[in-house]
Amino acid sequence: MKFGRNILSFRNFSFRNRVVVIFVGLALGVLSLLYTNKMAQRLKEKEQHDVVLWTHAMERANRDVMGNSLQDPLIQDIINNSNNIPFIITDENLKVHYSHLVPDEILDHPDKLRRQIDRFTDENPPVQIRYWWSSDHYHIIFYGQSALLKSLYYFPYIQLLVITAFILLGFVAFRSTKHDEQNRVWIGLAKETAHQLGTPTSSLLGWLEYLRTQPVDQSAVDEMGKDLAHLMKIVDRFSKIGSETPLTPANINEVVGESVMYFRKRIPRNVTLDYNGLAIAPVQANINAALFEWVVENLMKNSLDALQGHGAIDVRISSDDKYVMVDVRDTGKGIPKSNWKRIFEPGFTTKTRGWGLGLSLSRRIVEEYHGGKIAVVDSEIGKGTTIRVTLKRSFEQ
């Protein structure tokens, strides 16, 4: 119970850490967005103020020289060299008299010019330059936003994307690190289990040979020998976890058949186990026989648990030009469709006992070691489930 509480505490702690990291990242992004928007608003007000100052300067220049202030070198120098605000100056008939940072292709095309003026008007209200000698004639400044101001508007969104990317990368790195750490723990545990089982199995082999020389029921001794041989297979499987696993061509019918035959003698009397593999043409696939037998046994044990002591299990082999399929079907309680994928997740189980690792381990053996697939292909509540293992077929050279 204490061990379970420690695991739960560790999971909650890591979850809280992830929530805190995400919250801090979002808070920084929002603060950056607010601060940058405030800076952008101030810059916009400054640019509008600058344009008003230009207007006053041009109006004063017109009054002083009674001419066109746009031709005044000082006014041109102030406008051209002291800002990066794009603008167009027109008369009251929208005839262009002067422009800055607006391409000629827009100025020379009436429709494009009109659209550009509309865009400037949406960004900032136009400003009129009045002549002191006539109220009927005036210039209009249509101006937009500087490149710097536009950059400030987009900058916080870029920051949010960068912060989000860092959070995601950190989360992936964290998950990967924890996953690798858990893998090392499980691999070490598996190898230590295999090592610890080695001594008693060797001792049991000696006792078994002793029993063969004694006046006891030799059929019982033979069955004990089969169980011991199976136990040694389990030790071998555990020792292979985390190691390089060679795959060799094997007769799938025989490999699956051996597991079925061993399992058939150890199931309840009210459960039937059928197998078609010995009655059809043999098919081959590149497998590690010890690990693949483990998968088949896990599937049959899972089916037996679903039957609850009464029903049928049917193991069937089929193939096509590319693949060989092994189906394990039962008449048990079935699986809700929402759990078809979840049953292969580590720790997921609907049983009152067990760690929920059998199907997860089977998926790992099939997909990572053998490059195959394992999935629920059919299940109906109260009628049963079919799980299929698919491997790439091989042919004799």
Rank of each mutant, 00 (worst) to 15 (best):
Y143I: 04
D108T: 14
T121D: 13
S134Y: 02
Y138L: 05
Y143G: 02
K191Q: 15
R119S: 15
H109W: 10
K95V: 11
D122C: 05
F174W: 08
I89C: 00
V127D: 06
V162S: 05
L113N: 06
I88Q: 00
Y154H: 09
K112F: 13
V172L: 14
I106R: 04
D104R: 11
T201V: 05
A165G: 10
V162C: 07
V96H: 05
G206C: 02
Y131Q: 13
F171E: 15
D91T: 00
L168S: 12
Y143R: 03
T199M: 11
I167A: 12
L168G: 12
H97C: 08
S176P: 01
I85L: 03
L113Y: 08
S135A: 14
L152H: 04
L101N: 13
D118H: 12
I141A: 04
F171Y: 14
N183F: 09
S99I: 06
Q159R: 08
L208P: 07
Q196S: 04
L94S: 09
S146E: 02
I129A: 03
A190H: 10
H139Y: 11
Q182V: 02
L208T: 14
V96L: 03
T201R: 00
S176T: 12
P110D: 09
I88C: 01
I141K: 02
I117Y: 04
I167F: 06
K178G: 00
F87K: 06
Q128F: 01
S99V: 04
L149A: 14
Y153D: 11
L189A: 13
H139E: 11
R175G: 11
R184K: 15
K178Y: 05
L152N: 05
T199E: 13
W207H: 07
G170W: 11
D111R: 08
V102N: 03
L197N: 13
I158K: 02
F171D: 15
L148M: 08
E123F: 03
T193G: 10
P86V: 00
R114I: 06
Y131T: 09
L205H: 08
K191R: 15
I85Y: 05
L101A: 11
S176H: 10
S134A: 01
G188M: 01
D180G: 07
N93T: 09
W207V: 06
R119P: 06
T90I: 02
D108K: 15
L160S: 07
A147K: 13
N124M: 11
K150P: 00
V172F: 15
Y157A: 03
I129M: 04
S134D: 12
G144R: 04
K150S: 05
K191A: 12
E123D: 11
Q159H: 09
S202Q: 14
F87M: 14
Y138N: 02
P110G: 09
N93R: 15
L101Y: 12
Q116R: 15
F142W: 05
D136N: 06
I158T: 09
D104M: 12
H97P: 01
H137L: 08
I163Y: 08
T121K: 15
S99C: 04
F87C: 03
I158P: 01
D111S: 11
F171K: 12
R175E: 15
L160M: 14
Y153G: 10
